[in-house]
Simulated scan of single mutants.
Amino acid sequence: MSDVVELPADERERAGKGPARAARRAGQVPGVIYGAKKDPIMIAVQNKQLNKLLHSGGFFSTLFDVKVGSKSERVLPRDVQFDPVTDQPVHVDFLRVSAATSVNVEVAVNFLNEKDCPGLTEGGVLNVVRYEIELACRADTIPQQIDIDLTGLQVGDGIHISMVKLPDGVEPTITDRDFTIATIAAPTVVTEEAAEAAAEAAAAEGEGEGEGSEEAKSEDESGDS
């Protein structure tokens, strides 16, 4: 389970564009806490702190205790809106959760033991199809990451969800197929070298044909004289 992170916030008295703009001018990002059949709470969090959390990874699979005055709300991030020009966050949504709340979250994949993977040590390439896996679980069982062991895998092997041991009570949201997470692809260097060799051979053949044409042309001109 991921650690719960404390996040201080100020309560906003009113919703609307005016208060939201005022919060942004003050270096804050407006947001809302909703869910659990309770009234929503309008909040504002520090822009710098939110940006740091967004860039640290795993933001949407992390539980937060948002401190609003003397109260604390256990929440899970659901959405962040960004300015299309500056790419800065302009609004954030949090969902109230409890230990029993069922959620769907995308959790990052972490690959282990690359040095013990013959396919990689012999020059193969790890081709990642899914950097994150969407999981269904209770809020108190969200894994911090999904570890995948590469030990013993050869070139051409694929890693499917059926090969991954998930924690108890955690399941993939895709259940109708054994989807691929990554493959060990053939060495790209060999492919590039083969392509270069083919290109050089084609160029050499072209030069040979050109020389033959020049020789034939010279012979024709000598015959004419």
Rank of each mutant, 00 (worst) to 15 (best):
L7W: 07
P8W: 02
P8T: 06
R12V: 09
R14Y: 06
R14T: 08
G16K: 14
G18F: 12
P19K: 10
R21C: 05
A22S: 04
A23K: 01
V29Q: 09
V32I: 15
V32F: 02
Y34A: 03
A36Q: 11
K38F: 01
D39I: 09
P40M: 09
M42G: 00
I43D: 00
I43K: 01
V45R: 06
V45L: 14
Q46V: 04
N47P: 08
K48Q: 10
Q49I: 03
L50M: 12
K52M: 07
L53R: 07
L53F: 10
G57D: 08
G57M: 08
G58R: 09
F60P: 14
F60D: 14
F60C: 15
S61P: 03
T62V: 09
L63I: 15
F64M: 11
D65M: 12
D65F: 07
V68D: 07
S70D: 12
S70T: 10
K71V: 08
K71E: 14
S72C: 05
R74C: 11
P77L: 10
R78M: 12
D79R: 11
V80D: 02
Q81E: 13
F82G: 01
P84N: 06
D87H: 12
P89V: 10
V92F: 08
V92E: 03
L95P: 03
A100K: 15
S102Q: 11
V103S: 04
E106V: 03
E106R: 07
E106Y: 01
A108M: 05
V109R: 04
V109Q: 02
F111C: 09
F111V: 12
N113T: 13
E114Y: 05
K115L: 09
C117R: 00
C117T: 01
C117H: 02
P118A: 07
P118K: 02
G119P: 00
E122D: 10
G124H: 02
G124D: 03
V129Q: 15
E132W: 02
E132T: 05
I133W: 01
A136P: 00
C137H: 02
A139P: 00
A139F: 07
T141Y: 07
Q145V: 15
I148C: 10
G156C: 02
H160W: 03
M163A: 15
M163T: 06
V164L: 05
V164W: 01
K165N: 14
K165I: 13
K165P: 01
G169F: 11
G169P: 07
P172M: 06
I174L: 13
T175V: 11
F179M: 03
F179R: 03
I181G: 10
I184Y: 02
I184A: 00
A185Y: 06
A186N: 10
T188K: 13
V190R: 06
V190H: 05
T191D: 03
T191G: 01
T191R: 03
E192P: 00
A195L: 13
E200V: 15
E200Q: 15
A201P: 09
A202D: 13
A202R: 14
A204Q: 06
E205T: 05
G206I: 04
G206R: 07
G206V: 04
E207S: 12
G212F: 06
G212V: 11
S213M: 12
K217Y: 15
K217F: 15
S218D: 14
D220R: 14
S222T: 10
S225M: 13
